[in-house]
Design a protein around this nucleic acid. Structure first.
Length: 198
DNA sequence: GCTAGGATGCTCT
DNA sequence: GAGCATCCTAGCC
């Protein structure tokens, strides 16, 4: 059993939170069963000074949870196919979020395999869409409070003494170094020392 | 092993 | 009506 991170943790700069989430555990206690995984990759997003952010053009119906209480989940659909899971960051009222990009599966691995339809553990959650599907996250989770069960990130850090690699974010035309991942971890979503892509 | 391209639906212009 | 914070399959080395 893990202890959820408090709201204060999320009420900080996105890049700090993203880096600080590495090595902690994302937990989802669903009706189907419990799944969890170690966070090995995350990206930081900001607001109106960040062209890659959904909040770049101000508040809309879709992105309004980014302006709300930190520590809540921001889930949205990409390409009509994939759900992406973010955690809202920054002090309340200032838009910001951290996109969870990859997990190393920990508990409920069989349930993840069933939800994903693949058996290779390296492919279960190595990518934001895959992660959401393996964890059973969908649009119903948009706006839920992640400082308590059933969906939360642990205060405990399971990975210790790892190196953090910083790169530009993936799939966006913005070269700022806002992507963070665990060096050498096989479950990171892209090669250069990470998991296979397909 | 690798790469290219299609799927698919909602938001904002 | 375009453009995505992506994933998977087929087809080719």
């Amino acid at each position: 059993m893990w202890t959820p991170l408090s709201r204060d943790f999320y009420s900080r700069d996105s890049a700090q939170v993203a880096r600080d989430l590495l090595g902690r555990i994302l937990v989802h206690e669903s009706s189907e069963g419990l799944t969890s995984g170690i966070i090995v990759e995350a990206e930081a997003y900001y607001g109106e000074d960040d062209p890659a952010s959904h909040a770049y053009r101000g508040m809309t119906e879709r992105n309004r949870v980014m302006y709300g209480e930190p520590g809540h989940a921001y889930v949205f659909l990409l390409y009509g196919v994939n759900h992406l899971l973010n955690v809202v960051t920054m002090p309340r009222g200032i838009p910001g979020a951290v996109l969870l990009r990859a997990l190393q599966p920990l508990e409920g691995v069989e349930l993840m395999r069933r939800r994903r339809g693949v058996s290779d553990a390296l492919l279960l959650a190595s990518g934001p869409g895959r992660l959401s599907k393996a964890m059973g996250i969908d649009l119903n989770h948009n706006g839920v409070d992640m400082t308590k069960p059933p969906l939360y990130i642990s205060r405990e850090r399971i990975l210790k003494d790892f190196e953090v690699v910083v790169t530009p974010r993936i799939g966006v035309r913005d070269m700022r170094p806002l992507r963070f991942y665990v060096k050498g971890n096989l479950y990171v979503s892209r090669p250069k020392g990470g998991a296979p892509r397909a």
